[in-house]
Amino acid sequence: MGRIGILTDDKHPLRAAIVLAVGFNLFTLVVFTVSGWARGPESLHESLVLGLPMMLVDGFVGFQLYFVLRRTERLQPVPRWGLVTIAVVAVALVQALWDTQLRIWADTLTMDLRQSYIRAATLNTYNSGMLAGLFAFQTAYMALQRNQSLLDEARQREREAQMLALRFQLNPHFLFNTLNAISSLVVLRRTDEAESMIDRLSSFLRGSLAADPDRMVSVEDEFEMLDNYLDIESVRFGERLVTAIHLPHELARAQVPPFLLQPLVENAVKYAVAPSRSQVRVEIAARERDGLLELEVSDSGSDAEGVGSGTGVGLANVRERLRLSFGSEGRIQVHKDMDGFRVTLTMPLNLPPVPAERPLTIAA
């Protein structure tokens, strides 16, 4: 922690106040010594003799203002600062009494006792007021830091809740479609296909429940989950569904939000494969472009009239998750033509370092 961090350490406010008080009194001691040097040898000798004991006692007495400020912080401004002002004057009077007595003991009193006391009281009132102001500023700054930390934490919790809500929004949607497909297979007495679909659904849900909605996963894991999903759908559509997944080896470890592409693939199946009587190709691809990661889901279904308005949780869900995860750096592009439908997601390319191999230990 740097010097500024020590002065604004909200976890140890007393320590931060002590550091501030020591710094303030050391600065005052330096100014007192330089002033004595500028006035001549006698004044410098006086400053060297009196400076340290004066600042030790004055610093200890002045530090009591910190406790006054802390114990009055719940009061309204007028009574609080009224009490602080009284405390500043009281501290200055005690400091002036010590400073004057110290000059008497050192035989350096150069003016009338009453005048010396008034002069010392005036200077100490100014110093004590400055120190109280610094304590107040330090406390206010630490409170601002604390509130900012709480605000950041609240925003993070809100983001986590939004991400979780978006994730939970997907599961019922997917489950409804899959269970409806299983029900159709059972009605058609295609029991072998229904059993196969149930097995694949179990594997898919096992991976889904294990995933943390707020933790990134590798593109490889994301594509593997989509491959499992398409395996489930292939039971419904047979040869009508043809899939292709393109993942360059160097992008396999890139980090993305989990289940980011599922609603896009689900839309491709629902709006391109399901209504088509011919074969439809669904492709999933990853590539790097200009230092960014692009993920793309496309289909060759020419009958995609319902996609623009019927995506429901699909595009809206993906767009919101991109915003929550990457802010303005996450973008979504939708392209629709006679050859089908294509959605491209762009986001920062986050490649974690390759873990170092553990050294082989051979037992003696």
Rank of each mutant, 00 (worst) to 15 (best):
M1S: 14
G2N: 15
R3N: 10
R3P: 13
I4N: 03
I6Q: 13
D10S: 14
D10V: 10
D10T: 09
R15I: 06
V22W: 05
G23L: 12
F24D: 02
F24A: 11
F24N: 03
N25E: 06
F27S: 11
T28M: 08
F32R: 03
T33D: 00
V34Q: 00
S35I: 01
A38H: 03
P41V: 02
E46P: 01
G51T: 01
G51I: 05
M55H: 14
V57W: 06
G59M: 11
G59A: 15
V61H: 03
F63T: 03
F63L: 04
Q64D: 11
Q64N: 09
Y66W: 15
R71S: 13
T72I: 05
Q76G: 06
Q76E: 12
P77M: 04
P79F: 06
P79M: 01
V89D: 00
Q95D: 09
W98Q: 02
W98E: 08
Q101P: 05
R103P: 05
A106S: 14
M111C: 05
L113P: 15
R114W: 15
R119P: 00
A120Y: 07
A121T: 02
T122F: 14
Y126P: 01
N127Y: 07
A132G: 06
A132P: 08
F135T: 02
Q145D: 00
L150M: 09
D152S: 07
R155N: 15
E160N: 15
A161H: 10
Q162L: 04
A165L: 12
R167W: 13
R167S: 13
Q169P: 00
N177W: 02
L179F: 13
S184F: 07
S184T: 13
L185R: 01
L185S: 10
V187N: 07
D192Q: 07
E193G: 11
S196R: 15
M197Q: 15
R200E: 12
L205A: 14
L205S: 11
A210L: 13
P213A: 07
M216W: 08
Y229T: 03
E233H: 01
S234F: 00
V235I: 11
R236Q: 09
R236P: 05
E239D: 15
L241Y: 08
T243M: 02
L247H: 02
E250L: 01
E250P: 09
L251C: 10
L251Y: 10
R253F: 08
F259L: 15
V265Y: 07
V269P: 01
A274P: 00
E283Y: 00
R287T: 03
D303H: 14
G306T: 02
V307H: 01
V307Q: 12
S309P: 04
N317T: 11
N317L: 02
G327M: 05
S328L: 11
E329D: 15
I332T: 04
Q333D: 15
K336T: 14
D339A: 14
R342M: 10
P348Y: 06
N350F: 12
N350H: 14
L351F: 12
A356W: 06
A356I: 12
P359W: 09
T361C: 09
